[in-house]
């Protein structure tokens, strides 16, 4: 359905924006390495089904490889910055102070409690779905501490937030057309979108009206 396609395109766009930002500017100011590492973990644990060869579609498989590949590549690009632009790297590390153990622990626990089946694959899947919902927090925390961000960085965060927000009408669509109700995805998707709500509001007020992103 249209929402699902737009959502996935928005997700692709966010990654392209991020890669272009890092490659062109040759700096990683305002981008959280911790959030990017969490995404590597999210995709690697979610797409373990690639190993079972029970593929749903070519589209699905290609996208999964794309998300795993680009998330690893982003982390590598950011690590390269340690040598190519040490000032930018140090500045990023100085600001990227969110303690991710407070996300990993609870997500692991939630995965043990809420899952569809008590198997390694399903537990990893559930862990990834919980972790994705909060993976942006180090990034948002960094943003709120520095108070402003480059326009490109805010476009990246917006596109990334929009992707999960668009999955919500997709789930409503699927409920009516296929009678499908995937409770875990829906709940964590709502949680994830809620975490972005504040950012969406400021993005709408400032960036869409041509002003820079600056927190009140």
């Amino acid at each position: 359905n249209i929402f699902r396609i737009l959502a996935d395109l928005s997700h692709l766009a966010s990654i392209v924006i991020l890669l272009e930002t890092i490659r062109k500017a040759r700096q990683i100011d305002g981008i959280s390495l911790k959030t990017q590492i969490l995404y590597v973990l999210v995709f690697c644990t979610r797409y373990l089904d690639l190993l079972t060869f029970r593929w749903t579609s070519l589209y699905n498989t290609l996208m999964k490889f794309f998300f795993i590949g680009t998330s690893v590549y982003v982390v590598k690009l950011m690590q390269d910055c340690k040598l190519t632009n040490p000032v930018s790297y140090k500045d990023m590390m100085f600001r990227d102070t969110f303690q991710i153990k407070y996300l990993l622990g609870p997500c692991a626990l939630l995965a043990l409690v809420f899952n569809y089946k008590f198997t390694v694959l399903e537990l990893c899947w559930s862990f990834s779905i919980w972790l994705e919902s909060v993976a942006i927090l180090p990034q948002l925390f960094m943003l709120s501490r520095s108070g402003k961000a480059s326009t490109l960085t805010t476009h990246y965060i917006f596109a990334l937030g929009l992707y999960r927000a668009l999955y919500i009408p997709n789930w409503i669509w699927r409920y009516y057309s296929e009678n499908r109700l995937e409770k875990l995805s829906i709940f964590t998707g709502l949680l994830q979108t809620a975490l972005y709500s504040d950012f969406f509001y400021i993005y709408y007020r400032k960036v869409m009206k041509g002003r820079g992103f600056e927190l009140p």
């Binding site: 089904d49 999964k64 569809y116 499908r180």
Partner: peptide
């Protein structure tokens, strides 16, 4: 039930 669901989303 939920167990029958396939993860066909990304």
């Amino acid at each position: 039930s939920d167990e029958a669901l396939t993860h066909d989303e990304l």
